[in-house]
Design a binder for these strands. Sequence first.
RNA 1: GGCCCCUUCGUCUAGCGGUUAGGACGCCGGCCUCUCACGCCGUUAACACGAGUUCGAUUCUCGUAGGGGUCACCA
Length: 494
Amino acid sequence: MSEVRVRFPPSPTGYLHIGGARTALYNWLFARKYNGKLILRIEDTDADRSTQESIDGIISGLQWLGLDWDEGPYFQTQFTHEHSAAAERLLNEGKAYKCFCTREELEDKRKAALAAKQDYKYDGLCRRLTAAETAEKEAKGLPFVIRFKVDRHEIGGVSFKDQVLGVVSRTYNDIEDFVIVRSNGKPLYLLCNVVDDIRDRISHVIRGQDHLGNTARQILLYRALAAPVPEFAHMPLTLDLQKAKISKRSHGEIVAVQFYQKAGFLPWALCNFLALLGWSTSDNQEIFSRQELIAAFSLDRINKANSIFNYRKGDPKFFTDPKAISINEHYLRTMPIAELVPLVADKLREAGLWQDEYAAGQKEWFISTLDLIRSRFHTINDFVTLGRAYFSDDYEFEERAVKKNILKHEKLREWLPELADRLESLPDFTHQNIEEIMRGLAAEFGIKPGILINGARAVSTGLLAGPGMFEVAAALGRERMVGRLRHKTAGLYK
RNA sequence: GGCCCCUUCGUCUAGCGGUUAGGACGCCGGCCUCUCACGCCGUUAACACGAGUUCGAUUCUCGUAGGGGUCACCA
C-alpha cells in the first residue's frame, strides 16, 4: 500500500458526538496502523451554521479522547478559490454547465412529480441550452447555478469496491445533474469535499454510511478532474433504541463526547467501547490497549449492519450504554494505579477536596486509598461523591444506611463511642488490630459482629456499602475514625 | 415513493456448508462475606420468513417482510 492518508472532516455545527468520535477513531486507528497520516479538516463552508464554539468543542473532544492528528486543522473556507477553480475547469472542459432554472420552477416540478408519484430528477433543461442561449441569459444578469454533467450516453453506471460493504453500484440514470456551485458563486459540499481530498492526497475515505449515496457522484467528480479515486470504507451508523440515527438534536448531551468527560469516563475506555460498536475481532477480544487495538484493527472486520447505542433514558444506574460503563469500570479497577492518580486528583480539585499533601507526605496513603475504594466505582466522579468521606469530614449520610445500620439498634449510640475509646488506645492502628478490637467488643456486647461493623461504616462513611470496614478504618486513620464514632453517632438519632 | 445498504440472544457480536450456534454486557441464581462491589461458578436468551442449490444450510442464490440511509442552491 502506498502512503496512507485519511481524514476526519467534521462540520462545526454542534458538539462532537459519539458517532463522529467513532469515525475519528476508526480513521485514527487506520492511520496509526499503517504509519499513515490523519488530517483534521474543518468543513466550515456552511457559514450560517458554523461556530467557533463548535470548532473548539470538536478539537478539545478529540484531544481528550487522545486522538491526535498529523496535519491540520485545515479549514475548508481557506480553499474556496480552489473549489471555484475546479468548477471553472469543469465548465471550460464541457463537463458542467450553467443552469438558470429558478428554485421556484424546480420546486414546482418536484411537487408535480411527487404528486404523480414519480421520482424527481432534474430534467436537464439548461443542459440543452445552446452557447448563444446561455450567453443571452447571462447577459440579462439571470442568476445561475453550475451543474455537473452526468454522462447520459453510456449505459451502465458507477461501481466501486467498498472496503466494508463490497461492490456497490449505481446506474448513471439514477444520478441527476447535480449542483456543484450555488447561484451566489459558492461551491457545494460534494465538490469541495472532493477537491480537498484530492489536494490532501487522501488515500482512504472512511466515513459513515450516510455518505454512501454521495460516493457515486464524487467518483464522477474525481474522474472529471482526472484525479485518482481513493478507496472507500463506509462504516455502519449508530442508532438509538428506536433505530433512529443518533443526533445531537434529538438525543441531547448523552451522545456528546463532552458528556462522558464530565461524567467521569476514562477517555480510552470510551474509545475502546466505541471501537466495539461495529467492529470486532475473530477471537472476540474486547479489552484492548492502544497498541493492541491499532494492531488488531482492520477495515474488513467492520460490521455491515448498523448498531444500536443502548441506553435507557432516566435510569441512573445505566445512564448510558451499560457496556460502555462496564468497560469503564474494568479500566477503573485494573489500570495501573499511578495512571489513575492524576485523573482523580483533577476531579478532587474541581470539587474543592484536593490537598497538596496528597501528592507529598500523604502520597502513599492517597494511592492506597484510591486502590481500596476503586473496585466498586463506575466512574472517576465517584471518588468525589461516594468517596467523599475519605477526603473530607463533611459528608452526607445515606438515609438507608442510617435507618438500617444505626437506628435499628438503639444501643449503638453507646456501643460506637465505646468502640472509639478502644480504638483510641490501640497501640498500632492496623486493620488486623482493628478487626480484633471490633470482633472482641461485639462478643463482649453479645451481638453479631456485623451490627457493630455496619454501624461503624454508616457513621464513618455515611454509606450503606463500601470496602471491608477494618481497612476503611485504617484508611481513615485513627484520629478521624475515633472522632467520627464519638461525635457523629448521637446526631443520627435525632 | 425511487435508488442504495443491512438482517444471529434485550444490546455489542463470533461464525465464512456438517457446531450441544460461542463470547461479552445486562438480567437472574449461587459461592465468598461485616455491607456493597470485585472475583469465581451457573442460568435465561438468537440464526426475520419462504423457496431454491446441496447428502446437508445460520452460512450460497433468489424472493418476501422488516429496518436504516439518501434523494437541497446543508455538510
